[in-house]
Nucleic acid binder design. Sequence first.
DNA 1: ATGGTTATGTTATCATATAACACTTTAAGG
DNA 2: CCTTAAAGTGTTATATGATAACATAACCAT
Lengths: 192, 192
Amino acid sequence: MNESDSANNPRFSRSVSVGRAESVSPMASAHDHTACIERALKEADLLCANADVRLTELRRKVLELIWQSHAPLGAYRLMEMLEQASDRKRVAPPTVYRALDFLIEQKLIHKVHSLNAFIGCTRPRQPHGDALFICRECGFTEEVASKPIQQAINLSASQQRFEVEDQFMEIIGRCAACRAKQKSGASQEELL
Amino acid sequence: MNESDSANNPRFSRSVSVGRAESVSPMASAHDHTACIERALKEADLLCANADVRLTELRRKVLELIWQSHAPLGAYRLMEMLEQASDRKRVAPPTVYRALDFLIEQKLIHKVHSLNAFIGCTRPRQPHGDALFICRECGFTEEVASKPIQQAINLSASQQRFEVEDQFMEIIGRCAACRAKQKSGASQEELL
DNA sequence: ATGGTTATGTTATCATATAACACTTTAAGG
DNA sequence: CCTTAAAGTGTTATATGATAACATAACCAT
């Protein structure tokens, strides 16, 4: 029941999960996700201290909620989660967007433009040109830093005399786990 | 006066033009843009005939308006342009979004996700994995089909056993023309 | 011509994001 | 300590982008 709700999302024919609260991270059994969260938060503490910026309670909470899964999370969904998680009554959009802006500036999260959603960054110290491989079935998103990709882009940019300031690479498809799942399902059907 | 309105866009600190009606395409003097439009429309006619789908008057008009410049165009701006261009009184969002959906399906346009805007495709017959180099100053957007980029992505995908279905690559920065412009401006300032 | 399919019109609403201004917390310097 | 300017957060309203649901119109194959 964890992975099915995203597949039923009626918004698009090729919809992608944007991490509803109930949807436990795919591959949840394959890794200790608590460790992911803790590591991310600890690193955020360090980086912010270093940069002499304030990772306030709110901002830290937002980061923690985004890290609840490895799937992108929408701002309004995040607001709901904030209201539940905290003792807060109501959280208005500007509050959460400001926190998100901060986290993006500090390179602690990425905005996933094709989903209007946000995801924790796994390489917060590195320049942010990584490719995001996003599974349209389970939402699982893998951040990949590929030197060949970056070199290819840099080459193309220099050929045009284009000065790169920012780049977004989002690759939609099906992750290994979901492919394996369907493969086994298909073989069962074939047996009928 | 053509290129300045996008730089003044108050929406973002790092705003990018999304092709207001007044903003003539950058490099307008550098090429015969009428020919661009005609070529795009003619090719669309052919491709749709081939695919046995109907490039209706509305859809064709939308495509033509998107091709008015080489900068991405937002759906609501497009609606305004439709109302003016045609003798129509009012065009509602679903009308224009349906046309856009059609054009995307036929690979005649791209959606620029980081801007929520749309741009004509310069390679409508090819698979749609091109990188878009978007100038944040003038909006000029160059579609680049790079084999190295594609190979790098495919390699990374296969390593993860990820099945690619779609991909968006948007690179934000400053185009050669805008860099040259500022460079000359800066040198003038330095002379004071 | 006529009936099924495809396309468009229309109204309402959802979803995402920002503007503007008020209030509170923080921390740095006296 | 105190006080005060800056940074952060709260609040209300609204801009902007996109879709749902259903009605009407155009197309075209028999």
